[in-house]
Simulated assay, not measured.
Amino acid sequence: MRIHRLFAAALLAAVSVGLHAQDLATVCRATSSYDLTIRPGQLIFDRPAPAPTQVVLSDGSLTTDGHAVALSDEDQDRLAVFQRDLLALVPRVKAVAQHGVDVTMQAVQQESGSLNLDADTRAELQNRLATHATELHQRIAASQSTHDWHGDVANQYANQVISDIGPLLASALGQQAVSAAISGDLQQAAALRDRASNLAAGFQPRLQRRLQVLRPEIQALCPDIQRLAELQEGIQASNGRPLHLVQIGQ
Rank of each mutant, 00 (worst) to 15 (best):
G151F: 13
L89A: 13
I140S: 09
G184E: 14
I162M: 08
W149H: 02
A180T: 00
D77V: 14
R128Y: 01
F82R: 09
I140L: 13
V108I: 15
G166E: 10
Q160S: 09
V93E: 14
L86A: 15
Y157P: 01
A107H: 13
V96N: 11
D118N: 12
L62N: 02
S114H: 00
T104I: 07
A180K: 02
I165A: 06
S112E: 01
V153C: 01
Q138C: 13
D120H: 01
L62D: 04
A133H: 04
D102H: 08
T134S: 15
Q106P: 02
A130K: 06
G66L: 06
Q175A: 08
E111A: 15
V69E: 10
N159E: 14
A95G: 10
L86T: 12
V81N: 10
A107K: 07
R78Q: 06
Q98R: 08
T63A: 08
I162V: 11
S114C: 00
N127F: 01
D75E: 14
Q156C: 05
H99E: 11
L186S: 09
E124K: 03
Y157I: 12
R84D: 09
A123I: 08
V90S: 04
S145G: 07
V81W: 10
V178P: 00
S72Q: 12
S72A: 14
A177Y: 05
M105S: 05
Y157C: 05
Y157W: 15
T146M: 02
A97E: 00
H150A: 11
Q187F: 06
L125T: 01
S72K: 06
D152R: 12
F82E: 07
P91C: 08
Q76H: 15
L79R: 07
A130E: 09
Q176V: 05
Q98S: 10
D65H: 11
A97K: 02
R92F: 12
F82P: 06
A141L: 10
E74L: 15
A180S: 08
I140H: 11
V178I: 07
Q144H: 05
Q144W: 00
E74G: 14
L169V: 09
G113K: 07
